[in-house]
Design a binder for these strands. Structure first.
Length: 582
RNA sequence: CGGGCUGUGGCGCAGUGGUAGCGCGCUUGGUUCGGGAUCAAGAAGCCGGCGGUUCGAAUCCGCCCAGCCCGACCA
């Protein structure tokens, strides 16, 4: 490609709002442009990279038996009603009507569509196991898109779906993905870790997320430096200390101006571990008639701990959670600041095991300025016991007892064991060997392509621009010509292309500084400079990689040398790739 | 959805009541030619939209729209 013909151009200054380095360079180098909030166009340079990422993904998916398909972005709402997600997902799912008034949705993922396919194609165990995948656009009307390509509304995702006759089969396909994902990210040059995760709106049981660790990440990852246990904070567990005692008589005490745990413990001169605090949320549920309704949830947890909302949502079986308003809490007979389920009409009470297994805790009396001492779960109130504690930096590892650490990460991929969540609700059954009918057991596996590019830009950028690895860089070689009145650069460009080398050729009438700076921004791995200096000695200047010293290579050996350098880049990627197995 | 900020040539910005400017980029020509050269001459903006106040509005007021940031939210 000749630079003079390249559709995009470089920007000397960073557009306002380009907060992170990776995002800034993707814009400035001309890989992407923003069209609206969370909506981006991909320009030629960016698209070449995206295509390379996609090809890496395809290779690995085919490797584990995947067959590529494509499903529509627009779905009839019907199938989303069948699984109930039409009702359980909030405005993030965009709905509209077609001209005849039929309900339609923009697919935010394709479990429904693929299950519809599967229920028609798969009728016998003989057709299992099976694996399909697609690389397709998704639309999610995120309430707050941000951070360039990290959190967008329209994006490209590789999503694959596995079908099996039994759980062993699913486990096998799950493990195949687990490993293939490390190869994919490894080939792209992005360091990731896998963490145990919440299955969230996808339903299902086992799930892993692939995280690129970065301070700009929005997910919190809890890690044990000692035994290696890692999990998304949404599901991370920690070892808790309990304080069982002989039960004492419940008693009301006057505790003025003690609306917080800090104020309460200071006033009473006790430890936070001796208190039980109540957290009030409104959960969204769907009734038999598929009507949404909200219900108050009271979460009771020991004062020294905090509630992890994702855990609470799962324990309470709610589709969504939001903080409750004061009137809603009062309506159930409780008082914020002095609240507890004791004596209330709350129907959904989730009690953390820290509270259930400790005794004689101080709790709210639902009366302004009063608390109850010596309250005990089961004796004074009941509820569902669950682990709803948020593991934090310094919490104790449940496996080995060491202190946990916390870090930030960006989710670039995930794998879910869906089980029969979709096959059952949509009637995707097969006939087994013994003649019985059983729901197909499914898995779903995603990789955000654009987000992967954003993370790569973040990870590999230098102070002067992008620096994508050769496996995904838009071109392998950047040929910078600084000579005039010579047919040699054109000839060299043609020769390299003929040899299958991907070349970006800067033949513009611009000063050397402009060309070098643009080359730095675009960040093609190998740079060849043709200048009068070198041509006198019949040689060109070759820089084998970002930040490396350049060396003079005689023209006769140039193409061979370049090919060697390309090969060594690829070898390096392979050698440094870390592939984990489940 | 709450809180904050910003919308002025392609990009980055200045302009707090008198009719729009700077840097970069762009066009033409000259001189340069290995790290964002230089000289000269140009082109390009209903100042986000609508309404109001005023003799007069980019500037003041109201409403709306869009984008960004923090939070809520989020596979």
């Amino acid at each position: 490609m000749k630079m003079s013909q390249l559709f995009s151009r470089t920007l000397r200054e960073a557009p306002a709002g380009a907060e992170s380095k990776g995002y800034e360079y993707l814009l400035r180098a001309g890989y992407i442009r923003q069209l609206g909030a969370g909506i981006f166009s991909t320009l030629p340079l960016g698209l070449r990279t995206v295509r390379k990422i996609e090809q890496i993904i395809r290779t690995q998916m085919e490797e584990i038996g995947g067959q590529e398909i494509q499903m529509p972005v627009v779905n009839p709402a019907e199938i989303w009603k069948e699984t109930g997600r039409y009702y359980s997902i909030d405005k993030e799912l965009s709905r509209f009507e077609d001209r005849t008034g039929r309900d339609m949705v923009l697919a935010m993922t394709h479990e429904e569509a693929v299950t519809d396919l599967a229920r028609n194609e798969i009728d016998s165990y003989r057709r299992l196991p099976s694996l399909v995948y697609q690389i397709q656009t998704k639309w999610r009307d995120d309430p707050r898109p941000r951070a360039g390509l990290i959190r967008v509304r329209e994006f490209t995702m590789k999503d694959s779906y596995s079908f099996d006759k039994d759980w062993e089969g699913l486990q096998k396909q799950y493990e195949a993905h687990y490993e293939a994902y490390f190869k994919i990210f490894g080939m792209c040059g992005l360091p990731v870790i896998s963490v145990g995760s919440d299955s969230g709106m996808m339903g299902g049981k086992v799930a892993h997320e692939y995280m690129y660790l970065s301070p700009i990440g929005e997910d919190t990852i809890i890690t044990c430096p000692s035994c290696g246990l890692t999990a998304n904070r949404q599901v991370a567990t920690c070892r808790k200390t309990y304080f069982p005692e002989d039960l004492r008589e419940i008693e009301e005490v006057h505790t003025p101006e003690t609306r917080t745990i800090d104020e309460l413990t200071a006033y009473l001169g006790i430890a936070a571990t001796k208190t039980a605090k109540a957290v009030f949320m409104m959960g969204t549920y769907v009734d038999e008639q598929e009507q949404e309704y909200e219900d108050l949830i009271v979460a009771v947890i020991r004062g020294d701990l905090d509630v992890e909302e994702a855990k609470l949502q799962n324990a309470a079986g709610a589709n969504r959670l939001r903080p409750a308003h004061e009137q809603e809490i009062r309506a159930a007979g409780m008082l914020p600041g002095y609240g507890s389920p004791i004596g209330s009409s709350a129907r959904r009470v989730i009690v953390d095991d820290s509270v259930a297994k400790s005794n004689n805790l101080v709790a709210g009396a639902n009366k302004e300025g009063y608390h109850l001492i010596n309250t005990n779960f089961d004796r004074d109130y009941t509820g569902t016991v669950a682990d709803i504690t948020s593991a934090v930096e310094g919490s104790i590892c449940p496996e080995c007892g060491s202190p946990l650490t916390s870090s930030k990460g960006i989710e670039v991929g995930n794998i879910f064991q869906l089980g029969t969540r979709y096959s059952e609700s949509m009637g995707c059954y097969f006939q087994a060997e013994d003649g019985t009918r059983a729901p197909v057991i499914m898995g779903s596996y995603g990789i955000g392509v654009g987000r992967l590019l954003a993370c790569l830009a973040e990870e590999t950028s230098s102070d002067s621009g992008l620096n994508l690895p050769i496996t995904v860089a838009p071109y392998q070689v950047h040929l910078v010509s600084l000579v005039k009145d010579s047919a040699l650069p054109d000839q060299l460009y043609a020769d390299m292309q003929a040899q299958g080398i991907e070349v970006l050729y800067d033949e513009r009438k611009a000063s050397a500084g402009v060309k070098f700076n643009d080359a730095d921004l675009i960040g093609i791995p190998i740079r060849i400079t043709l200048g009068n200096r070198g041509l006198k000695e019949n040689s060109a200047e070759v820089r084998a990689g970002h930040g490396q010293e350049s060396s003079m290579v005689v023209l006769d050996e140039l193409i061979t040398t370049v090919k060697e350098i390309i090969a060594s880049h690829i070898t390096h990627i392979h050698d440094t790739m870390v592939v984990e197995r489940l």
